[in-house]
Design a binder for these strands. Structure first.
Length: 511
RNA sequence: GGUCCGUUCGUCUAGGGGUUAGGACACCAGAUUUUCAUUCUGGUAACACGGGUUCGAUUCCCGUACGGACUACCA
């Protein structure tokens, strides 16, 4: 079997879309599964759309999610350079060869002439107003001009492109790994530009030439490429590379969560979830977008989630490490239908992975948040907080955001809880509890608990009846982790102070 | 418009000529938890439609509908 060599070939026109990450992931999984190579090639043949920083972003993003590049931009390799703009001189000879072999031709038409042609065809009621086997005979190209005229134009440096001479009647067949045989008639394909007038190849030429030169065995890419895949097959044939043609696998698209249509940044913004792996600031517009990383997603959770968007192992196992994904992966099990993007599932994965982290790691997350807030906290305390919060967080930042009461006394109290649970009995208990607590010697959770129970017993009030009021006085909220542990963490003075404040503050409300 | 691709619970999906159509997320209910969350148990919920083929079709075939992609000297 041929060595598996796959490539991820993004265009540096902005931040890497999450769908792109999934494409890269599937490529990577296949490469690793078969002990093959994963390449990264930058497809920057459109100089107009180049966005500074995009390439670095792509490299960083792949690195963050754990997709390792064996060969390509950023790491080098035997087929360098891996940036198509730097490979510019290599493409022309293949285009020229196609011309020499009668499979391509020079075209000198101006933009206006092209526009006029389309207009004319449209008015004539043509199904598709394009440059093809019929219309090309009315245009200015090396098929209609004499050899001498063509030479003269070329010598004069008249701007021109090289177009593929697509056969008039030919059934083009393509065996896609995911979709099976796809048949397209050549009459449906237009004479695509192969070399642009600026001397750069178009995607179609560059992609085929590079995949051949880099010995790519499988082309795994988004479904948006399926319509032009037959064109690529034609190119392999005309270039005499049929034997080395890679296998194709066109991935189903990622769709927006509600309604229909391709997932876009707009949808993500509207629904408040990220669409890029990392934070991104558009250098042209200055527009900022939050990344999955910054939103608190763990890379292994994101990878697991992404892997399941369009693929499944055929078992009921849901949680997979990268290595397990590699072992279980197969292109055959990739689905055909588009996949709606459900951020809930991503959150669930994140929660699962976060729980899987050691308390030491989690404490580190919390301490990082605290440092940002300018709060000092020793490791022991952080460990305690993390231990009691672990089962209730989705994101690392939740330790801080949902646990602020560990560091700040509440200044406001949840109205609905106060109105329901704050009453004379509660206040009675709190007053006495506060006094008792102050007499304790560095109390732990159990001592707080014992004290509270003793007080309620003495007053003949059920602990359950007033516990939420106690919680309210300490945290300002009606829910949260083990209250006794909270008290242990903040200490008896703080407990006493908060109770006093709460009694004072809530007095008016109740009266 | 044309070409191509697709269609199983709300979502991701398993399955596949005869099944109580399975799982996960979400949702709902009960239990546990002194609260909330967790956890556990249970529940609601799907084969787009119409024709064939067949003893039998959700599964195979053909249409229709719906959705998507593509239709640039962009990738």
């Amino acid at each position: 079997m041929r060595e598996v060599r796959v490539r991820f070939a993004p265009s540096p026109t902005g931040a890497l879309h999450i769908g792109g990450v999934r494409t890269a992931l599937y490529n990577y999984l296949l490469a690793r599964k078969h002990g093959g190579k994963m390449l990264l090639r930058i497809e920057d043949t459109d100089q107009n759309r180049y966005v500074p920083g995009a390439e670095e972003y792509i490299v960083q993003a792949l690195k963050w999610v754990g997709i390792e590049i064996d060969e390509g931009q950023g790491v080098g390799g035997p087929h360098a350079p891996y940036r198509q703009s730097e490979r510019k001189p290599m493409y022309k000879q293949y285009a020229e060869k196609l011309v020499a072999d009668g499979h391509a031709y020079y075209a000198f038409d101006t933009e206006e002439e092209l526009e006029a042609m389309r207009e004319r065809l449209k008015n004539a009621g043509a199904a598709l107003p394009q440059y093809n086997s019929i219309s090309r005979m009315q245009m200015r190209n090396s098929l209609t001009l004499t050899e001498g005229e063509v030479k003269a134009l070329l010598n004069d440096g008249v701007p021109h492109v090289i177009r593929l001479k697509v056969p008039r009647k030919e059934e083009i067949r393509l065996n896609d790994l995911i979709r099976g045989w796809v048949m397209v008639h050549s009459s449906q394909i237009d004479d695509k530009v192969l070399m642009k007038s600026d001397g750069m190849p178009t995607y179609h030429l560059a992609n085929v030439v590079d995949d051949y030169l880099m010995k790519i065995s499988h082309v795994i890419r988004g479904e948006e490429w399926l319509p032009s895949a037959p064109l690529h097959v034609l190119l392999y044939k005309f270039l005499g590379w049929e034997e080395d043609m890679p296998q194709f696998a066109h991935l189903p698209l990622l769709l927006k969560p509600t309604g229909d249509g391709k997932l876009s940044k707009r949808d993500a913004d509207q629904m408040g979830f990220p669409i890029f792996p990392l934070d991104w600031v558009d250098p042209n517009t200055g527009e900022k977008a939050m990344g999955f990383r910054e939103a608190g997603y763990l890379p292994d959770a994101l990878v697991n989630f992404l892997a399941f968007l369009g693929w499944n192992p055929g078992t009921t196992q849901e949680l997979f490490t990268m290595q397990e994904l590699i072992d279980a992966f197969s292109v055959e099990r990739i689905g055909k239908a588009g996949t709606k993007f459900d951020i809930h599932k991503a959150q669930w994965f994140n929660q699962q992975y976060l729980r899987g982290r050691s308390n030491d790691d989690l404490a580190a997350y919390l301490m990082a948040s605290l440092t940002q807030e300018g709060i000092k906290c020793d490791r022991e305390k952080a460990l305690k907080i993390v231990g009691v919060m672990k089962e209730r967080v989705v994101f690392p930042k939740d330790f801080w955001e949902q646990g602020k009461f560990f560091f700040y006394a509440p200044t406001t109290f949840d109205e609905s809880v106060a109105s329901k649970k704050w009453n004379e009995d509660a206040v009675k208990v709190l007053v006495k509890f506060r006094e008792s607590v102050l007499t304790l010697e560095s109390p732990d959770a159990n001592m707080f608990k014992a004290t509270l129970e003793r007080v309620t017993q003495e007053l003949g009030i059920g602990t359950g009846k007033i516990l939420q009021a106690v919680r309210l006085s300490i945290t300002g909220m009606g829910g949260g982790p083990d209250l006794m542990v909270i008290m242990e963490v903040i200490g008896k003075e703080e407990v006493a102070a908060r109770i006093a404040y709460a009694i004072e503050h809530l007095k008016l409300k109740v009266a």
